[in-house]
Design a protein around this nucleic acid. Structure first.
Length: 744
DNA sequence: AGCACGCCGACT
DNA sequence: GTCGGCGTGCTC
């Protein structure tokens, strides 16, 4: 048991504490999957202010929780007899009101329990426990009688500040025994050291890199926009290499300058959070930022958390979870690479970090900068509709160039039977290899045959009740719609043109394309990149190998589109450009455009322009035409129009409800009961149950519903009404995913 | 999240 | 007969 050294906090000093209603009764929220805060007795007459960290018994255990603000929607008070006392208030700065508002808001939006969201805030485990005693050494003035080079080195190292024996020894290049000997001789004096050393203050006025006139203009505009009374989110739009980072760092500087305790967060996709990036920031501000990401060690995690809480960590650079740190006075968030799908958190509390950042800004009344070379459609639409501001880094339209893109009409230039790469595509790879460059074959599909088309007439097998494609399930030899659950035996003849035997499973998984690549280019070095191929380390290794030119042909899913840079990539073949246009994934077309933009970004530096070929059965589709035109804004407009027509986000709302269980029969029964309980409402519809994207996972079977509503409908309220009506057996678990990203 | 209470299989 | 499986429900 840890020493309970927390001191009682004199709560009467909390001047702004509103007197608790109902004398001495306060609400406490615990970091557990609980929807509500629990009532406790505060023994001091003034009670405890919201935000104060407390320890109290909850059931049989003692837990740390937070005194929570009383909200309007509360149910009748529990009997006083049930109330337990708060055992202690912890000696730590209270949670800021904006953070509590944010927890409540995220819980309401995502439909996860408040306590689960609070757990995201408290994820640093025992950060509130008193620090363990750590001893360091400083020079004591006295010099030992006998000096050695090692001793000299250690004493010199100790001049720099109080360091632990180990750190001192490492710095001096000597062993710890030298340190101990010096301490014993009285040349070094022991001194307790702070296990969570504060972060040095960033200096916003330090001269940064010289900005180009264009960067200066963008920075100025950004600073003007965010200085407004009621700041709106700003899209910072500029091509790779245009120096977006330097520009938004000026916004960070302005935010830090605005108040002595102001904090700023620069959020990055996990994969982009690298040491060189941190160094770059350190150079600008003359101090290391507080870095926050998933594989931070416990000590670092604790240090960052505590220093963010007490406000001394003023600049945080972190992955999506950094959004939930306990900021004291957050004044700016930059979401770099805002289009990245990696901002979508898929386990635990499911949320979109970019969207939550925007909400955090609104609650805290501060600006949010969304930076990207290939902004997401949602963000672009928000700009178009005047909800977001925009600052562009290139005077020319959008600036994002696309490579030389051509479409391959698969009806006119089909691959040989049993193959998936058309002659032009294969030729593109040939040429890339001959020129000593790399080729990428891109494919949005990792599973098996996802789409059944008629080779004769080009028509796609669709579900009768929706405009979605049918996916072949090989085991059952059936065609299944993953949206609606509709399924039928695979027919012999095409229902449109009646051609017999012309129906083919199309859009092969990466493995099948890899097979074909092996046949065609046996001498080339090839690799397959897909999320079910390997763990993160292997994925990393493949990406590094590609970057370093150790791979000639990479066959990859969307994983490759996550902000990587391959300097020698000269050809991209998109194996099935139709996939995203009406198929499983809402954002597949967008990812294709992002990927292509990346290729183009490099093409400027490469000797020859990058080339891309898109294989399609419907090359006349407006979205594909726009892509092939190489005009980014035209593409975005076409994509927006297609979303508008189908009522998809951002013009409509989606929610996914996943049911899972080890007991398949119970699951099916629960799914049926949910189906029956679907409320009728104007502007809302529910599709399903259908097999979930991954039907069997870790011994569980999973079914999924998709809710689609008009934009003006409160989708959470609709889902709540529905789910309240469908009681589920305990053996079936249910997860709500608002704004789902995975549709496959 | 823990933890206790509560009804159905293979053991001393 | 009982030990114990984990399904279900509660924690102010």
């Amino acid at each position: 048991m840890r020493a309970n050294a927390e001191t009682m906090r004199d709560t009467r000093t909390a001047a702004d504490a509103p007197a608790p209603r109902d004398g001495g009764r306060v609400k406490v929220l615990f970091p557990l999957p609980l929807y509500k805060a629990y009532d406790y007795l505060a023994e001091t007459s003034a009670g405890l202010a919201p935000g104060v960290w407390v320890r109290a018994r909850f059931g049989p255990n003692r837990l740390v929780g937070v005194v929570w603000p009383a909200r309007e929607d509360e149910e009748p008070a529990v009997e006083p007899a049930k109330l337990k006392p708060i055992e202690a208030a912890l000696d730590a700065p209270p949670l800021a009101p904006a953070v509590m508002d944010f927890v409540d808001w995220v819980a309401a939006y995502t439909m996860f329990p408040r306590g689960s969201v609070l757990r995201l805030v408290m994820r640093s485990g025992d950060a509130l426990a008193p620090p363990e005693g750590l001893v360091g050494y400083r020079p004591a003035g006295a010099r030992p009688a006998r000096m050695t080079p090692q001793r000299e080195a250690v004493l010199a190292a100790a001049e720099g500040g109080v360091l632990s024996a180990r750190a001192l020894a490492a710095k001096a290049g000597a062993s710890e025994s030298v340190v101990r000997a010096l301490a014993a001789a009285g040349a070094l004096a022991p001194e307790p050291i702070d296990p969570d050393p504060p972060f040095p203050a960033p200096d916003p006025d330090r001269p940064g890199k010289a900005l180009s006139p264009e960067q200066q203009a963008a920075a100025r505009r950004l600073i003007d926009l965010i200085a407004r009374e009621k700041p709106r989110p700003v899209l910072l739009d500029g091509v790779t290499g245009a120096g977006k980072t330097e520009v938004y760092l000026e916004a960070v500087a302005a935010a830090l300058r605005a108040a002595p305790d102001a904090q700023a967060l620069v959020m990055l996709p996990e994969i982009a959070l690298t040491l060189p990036f941190l160094k770059r920031i350190a150079e600008r501000f003359g101090a290391e930022p507080a870095a926050w990401h998933s594989d931070l060690g416990a000590a670092q995690r604790r240090r960052v958390w505590r220093r963010v809480l007490d406000g001394s960590a003023r600049l945080v650079v972190g992955a999506r979870s950094a959004l939930f740190l306990p900021y004291r006075n957050l004044r700016l968030i930059v979401v770099d690479e805002e289009h990245e799908a990696a901002y979508k958190q898929e386990d635990g509390v499911i949320y979109q970090a970019r969207d939550m950042a925007v909400a955090r800004g609104a609650l805290g009344r501060f600006p949010v900068v969304l930076a990207s070379a290939t902004p997401s459609l949602e963000t672009v639409v928000n700009v178009d509709q005047g909800r977001y501001e925009m600052a562009r880094l290139e005077a020319r339209y959008g600036g994002a160039r696309l490579p030389d893109i051509a479409l391959v009409d698969m009806r006119r230039e089909p691959p040989e039977p049993g193959r998936w790469l058309s002659p032009p595509l294969a030729q593109g790879v040939d040429e890339a290899l001959a020129a000593g460059g790399q080729a990428l074959l891109f494919l949005n599909r990792r599973g098996y045959a996802p789409l059944t088309i008629c080779r004769r007439c080009g028509s796609r097998m669709k579900a009768p009740d929706s405009d979605t494609w049918l996916v072949e399930h090989r085991f059952e030899n059936r065609l299944v719609c993953h949206h609606t659950g509709f399924s039928m035996p695979k027919p012999e003849a095409c229902p449109v043109c009646n051609a017999v035997g012309a129906l083919v499973a199309c859009g092969p998984g990466v493995e099948r394309v890899a097979e074909e690549a092996a046949e065609r280019w046996p001498q080339a070095r090839r690799a397959v990149l897909s999320s079910d191929a390997a763990g993160p380390a292997q994925i990393r290794a493949i990406l590094d190998a590609m970057r370093d030119g150790e791979i000639d042909i990479l066959i990859a899913t969307q994983l490759v589109a996550k902000g990587h840079h391959f300097p020698n990539l000269v050809f991209v073949g998109v194996v099935d450009a139709d996939m995203g246009l009406a198929g499983g994934d809402l954002r597949a077309a967008e990812r294709t455009y992002q990927l292509l933009s990346q290729v183009a970004g490099r093409a400027g530096r490469a000797e020859r322009p990058g080339r891309a070929l898109l294989q399609s059965f419907s090359p006349d589709a407006p979205v594909l035409q726009a892509l092939a035109s190489g005009d980014r804004d035209l593409f975005l407009a076409a994509e927006a129009e297609s979303r508008r027509l189908t009522g998809s986000p951002p013009y409509g709302r989606f929610a996914a409800i996943l049911l899972r269980s080890r007991n398949e029969a119970l699951l099916k029964e629960a799914a049926e009961r949910h189906r029956a309980a679907v409320p009728r409402a104007d502007g809302a519809e529910v599709w399903g149950p259908a097999p979930a994207p991954i039907y069997r996972l870790r011994g569980e079977t999973r079914m999924r519903f998709l809710v689609k509503t008009r934009r003006d409908i409160d989708i959470q309220a609709y889902v709540r009404t529905w789910l309240k009506r469908a009681r589920l057996p305990g053996a079936v678990r249910r997860v709500v995913d608002i704004d789902p990203y995975t549709f496959l």
